[in-house]
């Protein structure tokens, strides 16, 4: 399965990715960004947008 992964060392929890996700799959949590596997379609928009380059699309 293809999934979105956030590098917690790079993520500043600005939550902008949550705002651009067309599938409301992302949620800002205390420890970072959480991705709902049911909703995520791996479109990669969050990865393209992330100001810190903290998001990658990975194969699980």
């Amino acid at each position: 399965m293809i999934m979105i992964e956030t590098d917690k060392r790079k993520c500043l929890r600005c939550s902008a990715c949550v705002g651009v996700c067309p599938h409301t799959a992302l949620t800002l949590k205390e420890h970072g960004i959480e991705c709902d596997k049911e909703k995520c379609v791996s479109c990669g928009l969050c990865k393209d947008f992330c100001p810190m380059g903290a998001i990658s699309v990975v194969k699980e």
Partner: peptide
């Protein structure tokens, strides 16, 4: 703020295009 999850839960589409 930018994440705007509450509005989407209420049925208003606030998703930002890139």
């Amino acid at each position: 703020g930018i994440e705007s999850k509450i509005a989407r839960e209420a049925g208003i589409n606030t998703t930002l295009k890139l």
